[in-house]
Each structure stands twice: as C-alpha cells, then as structure tokens.
Design a protein around this nucleic acid. Structure first.
Lengths: 115, 115
DNA sequence: ACATTTGTTCTACATTTACGAAAATTGATA
DNA sequence: TATCAATTTTCGTAAATGTAGAACAAATGT
C-alpha cells in the first residue's frame, strides 16, 4: 500500500468516528467497536489507527475542554475530513458493485456446508 | 489480526474470485482488480493473498487441465467456500449498518473541500 | 497531598500487503 | 527430442497495517 489506502481496521475506525460524531475519542471509539462487532480491541490499537488516519488526511482532531467528571482528562475529539468521506464512499460503492457482480453460481449451495 | 479476520486486500480478492467464477486464477484476478479499481497490483501480492485466504478456509482451489493455447501452464482455479461467503456477507452487513448510523451532521459540508 | 479515574502517548512485535525475479510447465517448432 | 516462447505459480524480502499493553499525564475526591 502506498499510504493512501484504507486498511481493514482503519476503515472500521473511520466509520465508528462518523457514528459517534461529535463524541468520538479513543476510549469511546474502542467501546463502540467492541459493542458493534463483538471483537476485542486494545486501546493502543485504536489510537495508533487514529493517528495513521490523521496522517493520511482522513481524520482531523482537536483537544476538547476537560469535563467535570472524576478523572475527566481533556479528550481528543476526532471527526471525518472531506478526503475521509470520499474514501469511505468510494470503498462502499466499489464493494457494493462487486457484490452485485457475483454470479449466482459462484455461491450456489454454499449454505449447507459439509453435509 | 488473529488469522480469521479478512484484511482489506483479502476481501477485495475474495470478491473478485466470486465475480470471475469459474475462471478465477492468479493472473485473471490481477487483471480484474486492476480494471475495476485502477489500482496497480503485483502478481505476488495476489498469490500471497490467495494462499492466505485458502489457509483461512475462505477459498478452495483445484488445478485445471492444461488448455490448448501456446504456453499455458495449468491454472489453479479458485472458488469461494461457505465460510468465505459468510465472511463476505457479515462484512457487508456490518458496513452497511455502520454507514446508516452516521448522522448527517458528521458529513455536512464536507464535499466543498478547500475553497 | 495522595489515591483513583479517565485518557493519551510510546514502544514493540505480529500479520498483511507489495514487488519482481526465479522456477515450473506446456505447446510449437526445428 | 531439444530448444524456444508463452503462461502461470512460487519464493524471498521489504514496507505498511494491525495488535497489545505499559508508561505517562491530568483531572476529581478524600
């Protein structure tokens, strides 16, 4: 990859940032991924993906003010850029198009696996 | 990835194998990816992805008989397994669901990038 | 002041993706 | 049947992504 392609996990993170808008930050993103996918994710994985997405220009971020909760350190809030939106839509369209091009025969009988 | 997750390129290859059925083999897959995505792909990338997909159980393959064309080493033809189909559908559904959960606001005004 | 909670940064390593040269077959031709 | 040209896969290596969790930072409660 030449640094402009969206990886599998990166795409997931990008989508979740959209879903969580405007409250997308490291921990909330992690929680949302876990609850929507049943997949376990370490916090470090999320943050490294976030910073790579920002380097690629698909996300931007700003430091929010601290809240009044216990702990409540300042959050870094992420949001999608125009490039990020384009990348997401492009992937979505490509995949839908390919999905629809698969002939019936290619998948016929596959649901009753090894009888 | 723990060996059962589909990588970004792997998912693309899996879709193309479906599209090309029953004539999916290394070179034809490479050509189809290039023509459908305008992305340049090396033959080695395709083959390593194919063998990983087979290890994961998402693809199966068989050696076809030689054709009558000049040259023509025997092709290894790939097709999707039941597990592969499931993985593809699961990804497709998840992505559609997430896409639909993104609030309008998250993408508002992003099309007119840097005027 | 100190413990606790929330959150981000840093570091290290595993897996996937990428590239292209080398090797293996196969039909054609001499 | 030896060699050539064409087609396809295999192999070795480098770079990008994915995964994990400890270290570090800043806020609140007592």
């Amino acid at each position: 990859m030449k640094g402009t392609q969206l990886g599998e996990f990166e795409e997931l993170v990008l989508l979740i940032v959209g879903v969580l808008y405007p409250e997308a930050y490291g921990l909330s993103i992690r929680e949302e991924i876990i609850s929507q996918t049943n997949r376990k994710v370490a916090i470090g994985a999320v943050h490294s993906s976030l910073s790579r997405l920002q380097e690629k220009g698909f996300l931007k971020s700003e430091l929010a003010e601290a809240t009044h909760e216990r702990g409540g350190r300042r959050k870094r809030l992420f949001s999608i850029t125009a490039d990020g939106k384009r990348a997401l839509e492009k992937n979505h369209e490509l995949r839908n198009a390919l999905f629809n091009q698969i002939p019936e025969m290619a998948l016929k009988g596959l649901q009753l696996s090894g009888i």
